[in-house]
Design a protein around this nucleic acid. Structure first.
Ligand SMILES: NC(=O)c1ccc[n+]([C@@H]2O[C@H](COP(=O)([O-])OP(=O)(O)OC[C@H]3O[C@@H](n4cnc5c(N)ncnc54)[C@H](O)[C@@H]3O)[C@@H](O)[C@H]2O)c1
Ligand SMILES: NC(=O)c1ccc[n+]([C@@H]2O[C@H](COP(=O)([O-])OP(=O)(O)OC[C@H]3O[C@@H](n4cnc5c(N)ncnc54)[C@H](O)[C@@H]3O)[C@@H](O)[C@H]2O)c1
Lengths: 242, 242
DNA sequence: TCGACTTTGTGCAAGCCTTCACAAAGTCAT
DNA sequence: ATGACTTTGTGAAGGCTTGCACAAAGTCGA
């Protein structure tokens, strides 16, 4: 019902430049909706209203509807959305109709946790290779996979679409360069620091310290406006007003 | 599940936006600048221009200058920014002049990796407590700390400012409720799913699957070879951000 | 001291994103 | 079949964020 967006000679000047007509902000929320739909499906619930789904996803219902409107009209007025249909539509939009092969580079504390994490399969991803450069680790078995080197992966390993970097920060850029060189164009980086990659490569970085520091900023703001003298006071002896 | 609640929960409550005159978008980038400044300091570099620092942080120089202008004028025209002074100013803005005590709840694969992660100290945070509810884990020593229960922490543990949730998803909401009940108002959640908390509590969620799915979206777009009239919005080396 | 050069800080404009308000389109009881 | 009710889909408004252009303010060499 709104697929003609690009054809309409209306005012819509540059907004058509969005990938597939879906705003980036919306793309970032589609996974949340999909995540909220799964338990509904598992409970056998077949229909859900935007108000309820929005609450489950942690957004406002108007935003949910606006987001979904970019995918097309899959809701029924007066009723809501078919859970399975909507999940399928979002999955298709996100490209989850296939399983994306993933490689984890760096099998230290974090890399091993990621490797043993069950949240990949069933969500559109499968770990097909594990890489490290420590001779003591290469060749060992982890979660049913034999750890290899990046060179081996490039040379004789399985095709990989997404690379996850879990090496120390100083090695991250070099690893990214090698992943790009072997054709990988999507990278999820857990090492702190900015990765420089060609334009056509997508990078998302998750930095624990960054997240904590953002929390700290708000925590400080909150505390400064209440008890400027003793910031860390107010543990167990204070009831949080609400 | 207590998904019916008076208080709404936002990742960053709308009411907190632009706290202290600093836009939320800027707050999210300050940690990146701080992260980029650290290696400069370690190399003994005392001065840096916005152009250079922006490149290290992965943003545009105009954006960097605009962001810093919200903190005040700490640069010198024609010269640049004093590395140490700027780092100190950002650290102060983020509330990192003190060490924030952190508790990790859930000592499975991820929780243990986090506990053994050295990136906390020196960045403004210190792990002061480890919590699990598995009797086989409670009482054991991990990284020099004795694992306790949430009840023990609330009852006789150290004061904690920030809670990190690394439990399975089904337990996350209950854990969050208990953390909030004991006065914690900043939560970093690694379990997939939305947490409902009172308005005055700050929550940031990191979901591996969400990150991968956003990457998958762009990967698919790339492979579908771009819509006819949409010549790949390339441009700069941007992180696929949301 | 002066002039050329460099780089910061910022008003302004444009673009995105979110929220509002409401017509459209369906269900349901009678 | 009808009217009351529910809920979606969307134009428009408002707010936030980004990027541009340029004045301001400093350094440096002569
Ligand atoms: N541990 C955590 O909880 C945690 C949390 C957030 C971020 N991080 C970040 O994730 C990264 C990994 O953390 P960690 O605690 O697992 O570190 P770690 O030192 O335990 O493991 C790093 C692994 O990477 C391997 N490695 C090093 N250079 C490599 C290279 N060039 N190619 C392939 N493998 C290489 C090492 O052999 C090692 O096995 C770090 O950048 C860290 O800052 C870790
Ligand atoms: N492992 C990963 O790499 C990874 C990556 C991303 C996200 N996650 C998420 O992080 C969470 C933890 O993952 P994991 O692999 O470490 O799981 P895990 O099962 O290995 O560990 C979970 C731990 O939490 C403890 N726990 C359960 N309920 C608890 C409660 N009510 N109070 C205190 N402790 C409790 C369990 O005893 C266990 O030790 C999950 O939600 C997972 O989806 C994990």
């Amino acid at each position: 019902m709104s697929r003609l967006r690009g054809a309409r000679a209306e005012v819509v000047p540059e907004s058509v430049r969005r990938a597939g007509g879906v705003p980036e902000a919306t793309v970032g929320r589609l996974p949340l909706y999909l995540r909220a739909l799964t338990p509904l499906h598992d409970q056998g619930i077949t229909n859900v209203a935007s108000e309820e789904l929005a609450a489950l996803a942690g957004v406002r219902s108007t935003q949910l509807r606006k987001d979904l409107s970019h995918l097309g009209s899959y809701g029924v007025r007066g009723v809501g959305y078919d859970v399975d249909l909507l999940a399928a539509q979002i999955a298709q939009e996100l490209g989850l109709t296939q399983e994306w092969p993933v490689v984890i580079v760096g099998l230290g504390n974090l890399g091993r946790a990621l490797a043993s994490y069950g949240g990949f399969s069933g969500r559109g991803f499968r770990i097909v290779a594990l890489v490290d450069d420590d001779p003591a680790v290469v060749g060992t078995q982890v979660e049913g996979l034999t750890v290899t080197t990046l060179a081996d992966l490039a040379d004789s390993g399985p095709t990989v679409a997404i690379g996850v970097i879990a090496t120390p920060a100083p090695a991250a850029q070099a690893v990214a360069d090698q992943l790009v060189a072997m054709g990988i164009r999507s990278i999820l980086n857990f090492a702190p620091g900015h990765l420089t990659v060609p334009d056509e490569v997508g990078v998302r970085s998750v930095d624990l310290a960054t997240e904590l520091q953002i929390l700290a900023f708000h925590e400080q703001r909150r505390l400064l406006s209440v008890s400027p003298e003793d910031p860390l006071r107010g543990g167990r002896d204070r009831e949080v007003a609400g």
